[in-house]
Amino acid sequence: MDNREAYLDRYMRNTHLLGRIVSLAALVMLLGAPFLIGAVLGAMPDLGLVCRKYLSIGLVWIISSVVEFLVYTPMLGAGGSYLAFITGNLINMKIPCAINAKDMVGAKSGTRENEIISTLSIATSGLVTILVLAVGVALLTPLRPVMQSPRLAPAFANVVPALFGAMGYKYYRQNIRLAAAPLLIMSILFILAPGLTGSTGTMVIPSGGIAIGLAWLEYRKHQKEGRV
């Protein structure tokens, strides 16, 4: 094993160690904060109520977290995924951001290069959000009327469609045949069962499954033809 490989192995081991430590620390802080705030306010959380209502409120988010972990961890790599699960806002920011960065530099999934680029991307994105929110909170009084003006409301309500429109073009043009089937199937499903729009995050799984299945068939075909 050469020096570079040894360095990378050490880097990865330390990334997992650091990721676990900071995740646990963040977990303790986030769960501890309501108690600390409760102490300041002189009113502790009602633990009985939290236990009784936890499943009814949290079940959908537990399932969603499992799905997000299984799907997005391989996309983001180790450092990127530890950071992304700490900083949040995965679908509407971190995932597209990391994918965009990966594409811009031409990194391949599963490589050390992608691990580095993904970590840089998620860390940058997290810092930008923290900065924007800190400035926004500091300037809340003058910003509130602007941010909440009815004129601008449609713009802020449509950040995700704007994001997926731009990213959609970028990805669809690379493989329009692959994109057509999931888009068609999802459109038909959502038209026939509009109630599913509340579970779009979960519908990513079958949609992604269809796309991956088709990609696999294409890959096998190219393998047989000796093109990959």
Binding site: M167, Y172, P182, L183
Partner: peptide, 26 residues
């Protein structure tokens, strides 16, 4: 790139398709 890279791209296509489909359905 191996299939892992293709699969991640396909997963993202699936994700975008689900959201665009939901806008159309809505």
């Amino acid at each position: 790139g191996g299939f892992g890279d293709i699969a991640m791209g396909a997963m993202f296509i699936g994700m975008v398709s689900a959201y665009l489909g939901s806008y159309l359905g809505d």
